[in-house]
Amino acid sequence: MIIVIGGSGFIGSYLIEKLLEEHEEVILTGRNPKVMEYYKGRNVQFIELSMENAEDFLKLPTENVSGVVLLAGLLPANVKDYNIYQYIDVNIKGTINTLEYCRKNNIKKLISTTTYADVQNLWSKDRAIIEEDKRDFNYTGDHAVYVISKNAAGDIIEHYNQEYDMQGCIFRLPMVYGVGPHGSIYVDGVLKKSGIQTFIDKAINGEDIEIWGDAYLERDIVYVKDVVQAIYKALKTSNAKGLYNMTSGQTVTLEEQVKVIIDLFTQDKKSKIVYRPEMKNTGTSFLFSIEKAHKDFGYTPEYKDYRIMMEDYKKELSKHSYDFLIQSRVKN
């Protein structure tokens, strides 16, 4: 049996599909009533659970659990009103509650996630960041406390690995692409349409697409289905332990992204690219090594080519498989 804490979210919903395809017994937790109804309709057990409430973990089974996947967490993109206590309660205290549940019930395998912003000041297109690199992040901005809370959570997981011989994994994630409830995200508390959603909408409508700043800025992104297959592989081996970069291992430029989206989503009129180098773009190029994940549990991304990634993205949109997820977004 595999328990997915935070299974009602974006990555969690894809992971549930993967686990069901693999004929795994699954229990998921969350607090989203629309997603709860969806999975109940598919005879998947859904337990309502608040990360910060230790007593809620008493609802979970104590036997025959082979692994726990911790995907629940508080992210700035989902938060309208900044509250430092929420980051501490959900991301740190919630991780401790999860670890204590695992320790008390002799569950060795835990998969969790962290943010690629923990090494933001090391980002570069010229050198792939490895897991052994020291953290170097910004202490200002709407992501600062989020990064701090995820760093602390990861350190506590490593403490349990060493103190209690657990097999806790922390997947360091960049931007994860896939169909989900993130067409709009919060930036400094203001809800804004995401970059990829803006590009897709403009391509569909045949409108000009502006690229601000450096059109050749390079980013190492990852597709949600690759994250999910990596989680499953890590669950099935005793070799996986500690921090792993979970990216595609290669970069794509902003210009390449826009060109692929125009090719795939054009309906009648084809959008033109308008280059605006004079406009500020806060993005930075970055690249991560995925050699450790490949070596320890055979992670090889299937969607590292951006066109292949977006072809599948479009296919999933047309299938409406994740409409329940898009419609389930809970506003803070």
Rank of each mutant, 00 (worst) to 15 (best):
T140S: 15
I326P: 05
T95A: 09
Y101S: 11
I129D: 01
I156A: 06
E63W: 00
L58W: 03
N245F: 05
R276S: 14
D133I: 09
K319R: 13
V258P: 07
L71S: 02
Y306I: 10
E278F: 02
K331Y: 13
Y313A: 05
I273E: 09
V227Y: 01
S13E: 07
F199M: 14
N245R: 07
I27T: 14
L110W: 08
E218L: 12
N281V: 06
F46G: 01
L235F: 03
L317W: 05
S124P: 06
F137N: 07
L191I: 05
V69Y: 04
E158H: 04
I129W: 01
V224P: 06
I326A: 10
N332H: 01
V4F: 11
E218W: 02
K295W: 04
I308H: 08
Y160A: 08
I27G: 05
D323Q: 14
C102T: 11
V330H: 06
Y164G: 03
E55I: 10
V222T: 02
I231E: 03
A72S: 13
R329H: 09
K236L: 14
N78G: 08
S149R: 04
I47C: 12
L28Y: 09
N161T: 10
R42W: 12
M51V: 02
T114F: 09
D142S: 12
T300Q: 13
K93G: 00
D263L: 13
Y223F: 15
V68K: 04
A293E: 07
A117E: 14
M166T: 05
Q327W: 03
H23L: 04
E17I: 03
T115E: 10
I200Q: 02
N281F: 03
A72D: 09
